[in-house]
Amino acid sequence: AVSDRLIGRKGVVMEAISPQNSALVKVDGETWRATSGTVLDVGEEVSVKAIEGVKLVVEKLE
């Protein structure tokens, strides 16, 4: 799938994300809905860990 190429890519949080709420991230110039197990604020850099349906699963870039 096209989205599989995004695993391992870096992105930027466009809307705050919490474990209860998905929000938008920008990866390679494209906007995607994403979820995370932690709270992520706007502007934080993230890494794509997986794809669940049409959502990216991201975590904060260390």
Rank of each mutant, 00 (worst) to 15 (best):
E45P: 07
V25A: 02
G37D: 15
R9D: 02
A34T: 07
K26G: 05
G8H: 04
L56S: 03
K55R: 13
P19Q: 10
L24G: 03
T35K: 07
V54D: 15
E45C: 15
K10G: 04
A16N: 08
K49A: 07
I7C: 07
G37N: 14
G8V: 03
W32G: 00
W32R: 00
Q20G: 15
D28L: 07
L24H: 05
T35L: 10
V12S: 04
S3F: 12
R9A: 07
G53R: 02
E59W: 04
V2D: 09
N21S: 11
G53A: 04
V13T: 05
G29E: 07
V39R: 12
L24D: 04
T35M: 10
S3A: 11
A16S: 10
Q20M: 11
D28T: 02
K26F: 13
A16G: 08
D28K: 02
E45A: 10
S18P: 08
V54G: 15
E15I: 08
I7A: 03
V27F: 04
K26T: 08
A34I: 04
Q20A: 11
E15W: 09
T35R: 06
I51A: 03
V57T: 04
R5K: 09
V46L: 01
K60P: 09
V42W: 04
S36C: 14
V2K: 09
E59G: 06
L56N: 00
V54T: 14
E62T: 12
M14D: 02
G29M: 04
G11T: 02
L6I: 07
D28A: 07
A34L: 00
V27M: 03
K55A: 10
S18K: 08
L6C: 06
E44A: 09
A16C: 12
V27A: 01
K55W: 15
T35A: 06
A34Y: 07
A23L: 15
S36I: 04
L56V: 05
R5P: 05
E15L: 10
V58K: 00
K10P: 07
E15A: 11
E45R: 09
V25T: 02
E30D: 07
E44N: 09
L40E: 01
S47G: 05
